[in-house]
Design a protein around this nucleic acid. Sequence first.
RNA 1: GCGCCUAUAGCUUAAUUGGAUAGAGCAUUUGACUACGAAUCAAAAGGUUAGAGGUUCAAGUCCUCUUGGGCGCGCCA
Length: 553
Amino acid sequence: MIKQQVLASLNSVLAKYLNNKGVHGDFNFTLEVPPKNIDADFAMNAAMLIAKKLKVNPKIIAEGLVEIILKEISDVIEKAEIAGNGFINLYVKDEVIYKTLKKILVEKNKYGSMPKKNKKKKVLLEFVSANPTGPLHVGHGRGAAIGDSLARILKYLGYDVTKEYYLNDAGNQMFILAESTKIRYKQMTNVKIDFPEDLYQGRYIVDIAKRLFSEGKDINEVDFKYETIKDILKTIKDDLKNFAVEFDSWIFESKLAFVEDKNGRTKVDEVCENLFVKNEAYIEGEALWLSSSKFGDTKDRVLRRSNGKYTYLASDVAYHKNKFERGFTKLINLWGADHHGYVARIKACVQMLGFNDEALSIILYQLVSLTRNGQSVIMSTRNGEFITLKEVVDEVGKDACRFFFLLRDPNSSLEFDLELAKKHSNENPVFYVQYVNARCNSIIRESKNREDIISDVETINFALLSTREERNLIKKLSAFCDTLAISEKTMSPHHFTTYLIELADVYHKFYEKCRVLTDDRKLTSARLKLIESVMIIIKNGLNLLGVSVPDKM
RNA sequence: GCGCCUAUAGCUUAAUUGGAUAGAGCAUUUGACUACGAAUCAAAAGGUUAGAGGUUCAAGUCCUCUUGGGCGCGCCA
């Protein structure tokens, strides 16, 4: 918020300066937080950028800028200095800093948020979308955490977000799945039969068969595919719920793509014909091919096989068309990085359907590498040994698990050591952050014994918060808004874990140095307001990550 | 073989998207609890950002090459 205000003021000054010089064009200058050895609040790089354009010495530009800054916006900037290399170091007026604090206290859980006015930003965020062939594993958990947090952040910023889970229930994997349950069922009826290796081995299949068997239905009357998917889906939904992830919309491939209308035509028929007519698809060797190489794919892809059956890609094209038809203007797909080979072709499809390439963003997250006592654990839903999301959540808790998943850039691989995650100790950074809230609460509880506390925000003298630690803390609180901005820009929530850890660090330093409850009534009141703000921001930040905030630990 | 991603301290990693002396946590060493929670703080040590070139006022970040790692290359989903 401080940064935004300074930036706005500087923009107006800069526009005036450039206008006087007769220079046109955009200068995307930035305000940086300077390194520790420099005392200033912000550093601006505008002089270098302008100097480059005008081909003059940056120092001359900087001198001119400093002069006009001090003249025009002295209500915001206390001091401006030129650094040797052309940076302008800015010192923000105390009033601006304190105003932020007031804003946080007044706006509370809306601080930094935008009203839901961006109707044009109707976002469809599709994530997890794991095939219903087994419970979610740890890798899906990362996708769930990232997607859900991203949705929370975008909503906070005023986007109209729909979270969607797409179920591939139409492929021949489903046949194998149904067969797996059926054979398990048969084994229970004392029929001697081996369980083939290429079927799903997991225990959950046995459990489903058990349920069906206990219901006593005749084997020929049971719809194994339907029953198996039903149970697995329930498991998936339960696991997600325990992970604080809820979807707004569930889309079944079978229903979306393969249901016939009154003329006996499906959506896949429609979209393939459409592409053929548009000359984006052609027939060769009796198969229907998509000309995806025209739009950057490495080769063309089959939509309909020579045997007349559609590929997975075909129904996916229908699905993406459907997304746009439902009025979404921005599609975000969150995929595991092992699907990267699929990006080019689906992007090609979007363009062939007549939509802007930018309308679809595909975020890839690197898979979780799971280790146990240093030994890597192979994760496969087909294998006997795999670690489910539920197992990890049950062991380390929802909060630690989510925080852990959100700790890294999606594009960087995440090492998840089960033994380490199981440890319920302070090695986990989530405790470091939550501890801030616990400490704050403790002080608040203690302060309830006093009757001389000033609670009205307007009568508080914030100028008493004058130590370096206090000023740093307020500035860090204000950086909540910057974190929102960068998260939006990069479409990643991981900046918030980093931010909260940094905020916690600054808070603990403040805590050591500045005692809150003292004999000084006015100072105590001001500091109590400061920690109230800290609690608001910690809570807001953790909410965006889907992590809860205990008052006591 | 082709394509995408990636390489930062002993380990796990961040870096406001091209900015100043590359930040944290864990592990190691040292110090601080008779006032609000020591799940904390203060300090030390740890780096040629895989290597070599290039672009520019400025490169961990962009470009080229080399090397190591991950993943993907079906008329599977």
